[in-house]
Amino acid sequence: MVVTVIGIIRAHNLFAVVMLGGIYSFLMATVLVVLDAVDVAMTEAAVGAGMSTVLLLAVLHLTRTREAPLRHAPVIPLLICLLTGGALVYGTLDLPPFGQPDNPQNLHVAPYYLENSIEETKSPNVVTAVLASYRGFDTLGEVAVIFSAGIGVLILLSRRRRREMVVEDEGRSRK
């Protein structure tokens, strides 16, 4: 994954960037399976590698596929990134050890879900039970977000393109 990300940073051909992004998503899905998150891995493979690649390719078709070279040396962004990275690495030193069942995050509500979901919802897949039942509000909110994002895209793009409109926009931008 690290190699693909370096590739994405260095590649100037946007087509290559999109393809590397697809590879990256599949690798991410594999890692998620190793981490026992099969539901998430399935979503990531379908959404990350499938949907977003298709969308990005459609946009590349509409725009152009070469990236302009950087105008100035990226000193400040590099500095910011190094600072952030350093702070985060410092933060990992305090994190609880990996994969122990008595870590704080595994003691809160998760055991309750694991023990009771099969009696209360008859659903062996705890992820689905939590998603739809215990945290139904969350999911309703997420669905609403997807709904509004979809509406937003429709509003932005479903107006038919007219020549005058484009010219008018350009005229406004020149002022």
Partner: peptide, 10 residues
Amino acid sequence: NPLPHVLILT
């Protein structure tokens, strides 16, 4: 732990 799975799934 199933909880992070749910959050990330959505």
